[in-house]
Structures are given as C-alpha cells and as structure tokens.
C-alpha cells in the first residue's frame, strides 16, 4: 500500500472530524472518513514475542544514542559546553600559569595537556547524569519504558552517545594542543591506547553521574552536584601542578587520587615514560568504580521508577 495515499485520506478525515465535532453526536460522514483512515486499524496479532532479542536491543541502543547526538544539532550551546569550555581552560591555564609552574609554556603544555584531557573527560561524564535526569523529570523516560524495548537500552544509548562526545573532546584538546606546540613523543598506537584507556575509564566513571542523575531532583542539581564534586577531585591531583611542590601531608592523597594515576598513564602514552603501572592501576580503579556504582545506580533507578 502506498503510504502517501493513506496520509491523504487520514488528513481529510481529521479535517472533516474537526469541522463537525462541536456537537456531541458523531455524524455518518465522520464515521465513513474514519473508516478510510486505516492507519490505526489494529492488525490481528500473532503470538507476540515474550522478550527483546539481543540484536533488536542493540539496534534500540543505537537509535537512542543517535537521539542524544542529534539533540546537539538543535542546541548548539550544549556543544559549547564540551568544546568551548575545555579550550578556554587549556588556553587560560597554559598562558597564565605555564611560566610560573614549569618555567615555560612549552614545558607546561607537555606536562599539563594529558591531565587536562583526563579532567575534561571527567566533566563530560556529567552529561550522562544530566541527560538521564532530564528524561526522568520531563517524562521521556516513561514514554520509553512503555515501549516494547530492552530495559537497559535507554541507559546504554546515553552512555554510547557519551563515548562519542568523549572521543570528540579528546580529539579537540589534543588537536588544539598540537597547534599550540604539543609534540606527541610516542607512536600512533600509544595514542590509540590512550583513547581506549580514557574511554574505558569514562564508561566506569559514568556510573557515578548516573547515580547522581537518578537521585537529583532536577537537571540543574545534577550539574551542581557533579561539578562541585569534580572540582576538588581534579584539582587535588597532579593535573596542573607536579605533586612534589605540594605540602607533604597532601602528597599521599594526590598520589592515591585516580585522576593523578590516569593522568600519569595518559602522560606515559602521549609524551613517554612509565605506562604499564599507572595504566593497570587506572583499569583497577575503573573496575572498582563500576563494581560499586553500577549496582547502586541500578538499585536507585528501580527505586525511583517504582515510586
């Protein structure tokens, strides 16, 4: 059947219905028009599947990831959040603090860029929680839950979209860094490994923002919680300043901070130096964060949805 023909008769039926609907009674014209508007005629259903096949669930996840990304087209400001903001940070820190911390901006760039990429990655994860909370508070999540789709695909779709945004921000910062004079001291394979490590960590860290997204009352609170918690975590690290310059009592904390460890790994993979140990510790942290926060998030989400 030609869908365009169905469209036309449907539109006519609507207009006819609208024109004659001021009274309570349904006219015969209404009825016959409606009969032609076959769009909603229920087809006899054969035995319905009892669950979602995996292939369909993956396709649903991709459709929902597409949806999160296409949102940006209508809200270019969102792109600014993970493009303009990190660029500003990079340039400001480099030229304001570079000379004081490292003696020259070139040396500082080599030290700071890998850590800056790590920090930005953490901030971008807040959008997973922010977007999830928006869906929960604005009702789109309920629309999705009433559809015959896999229960996990809305969340998986969000996280998949987030990985694309993450990859984009890493490329952006690395590209800008290279324009400003950063030199990759390793191989392309090392750079790819850094991408993989950061995305793996982002995946696990997202569970924390998912939890915030589930608990928070509205999207604004997600951003408030997220950024307030992330600032001390990223600043009490070796992202901007070498740990040796800090007071002795603070150094153990900075060294134990996964942000420092991941920054060390990123430095090793981009500039050169020790890689294996910080990379393995970073993965261990990623596993630990997932083990704690994934079940907590799922529990909190179930709780919120049942209320």
């Amino acid at each position: 059947m030609n869908p365009e023909r169905g469209t036309d008769s449907g539109a006519n039926a609507v207009r006819a219905g609208g024109a004659s609907s001021d009274g309570g009674a349904r006219s015969d014209a209404d009825r016959s028009n409606a009969a032609r508007a076959d769009e909603t005629a229920a087809p006899p259903a054969p035995e319905l599947p009892a669950r979602v096949p995996l292939a369909a669930a993956l396709q649903q996840t991709l459709a929902l990831a597409w949806r999160s990304l296409v949102q940006i087209r209508h809200n270019p400001w969102e792109l600014g959040d993970y493009s303009i903001q990190p660029v500003l940070f990079l340039v400001l820190f480099l030229y304001v603090f570079g000379g004081a911390v490292a003696g020259s901006t070139d040396d500082y760039l080599a030290f700071m860029l890998p850590g800056m990429i790590v920090m930005n990655m953490l901030f971008v994860t807040v959008y997973v929680g922010h977007g999830l909370n928006t869906d929960l508070t604005r009702g789109f999540f309920d629309r999705l839950r009433a559809l015959p789709i896999a229960r996990w695909s809305p969340l998986a779709g969000r996280i998949t979209a987030d990985l694309v945004k993450q990859a984009w921000s890493i490329v952006l910062l690395l590209g800008l860094g290279i324009i400003l004079g950063f030199r990759v001291g390793t191989s392309p394979l090392h750079v790819l490994a850094m991408f993989a490590l950061l995305l793996a960590f982002a995946l696990s860290f997202s569970w924390i923002t998912v939890l915030i997204g589930v608990i928070a009352r509205d999207p604004e609170h997600v951003q408030l919680f997220g950024f307030t918690a992330l600032f001390p975590v990223t600043f009490v690290s070796n992202v901007f300043v070498p740990v040796e310059t800090m007071p002795a009592w603070l150094q153990p904390l900075v060294n134990a901070n996964p942000v420092s460890i991941l920054s060390d790994a990123a430095r090793g993979l981009l500039v050169g130096g020790a890689v294996l140990q910080p990379a393995l510790w970073s993965l261990a942290w990623a596993l630990a964060l997932t083990a704690v926060f994934a079940p907590l998030s799922v529990f909190a989400l179930r709780r919120r949805l049942s209320g």
Partner: peptide, 21 residues
C-alpha cells in the same frame, strides 16, 4: 513485554523529547 507491544500511552508524564523535532 507483550503488554507493551499492544498498547499506546499518552499522558503528561509520557512525553516526547523537547530537544528533538
């Protein structure tokens, strides 16, 4: 899951995505 295959839901809480067309 079978119920979800035969129903449509329209309510103030089951909304569309405001950022999409």
């Amino acid at each position: 899951h079978r119920v979800r295959q035969v129903i449509g839901l329209t309510g103030q809480y089951a909304s569309v995505d405001e950022k999409l067309t």
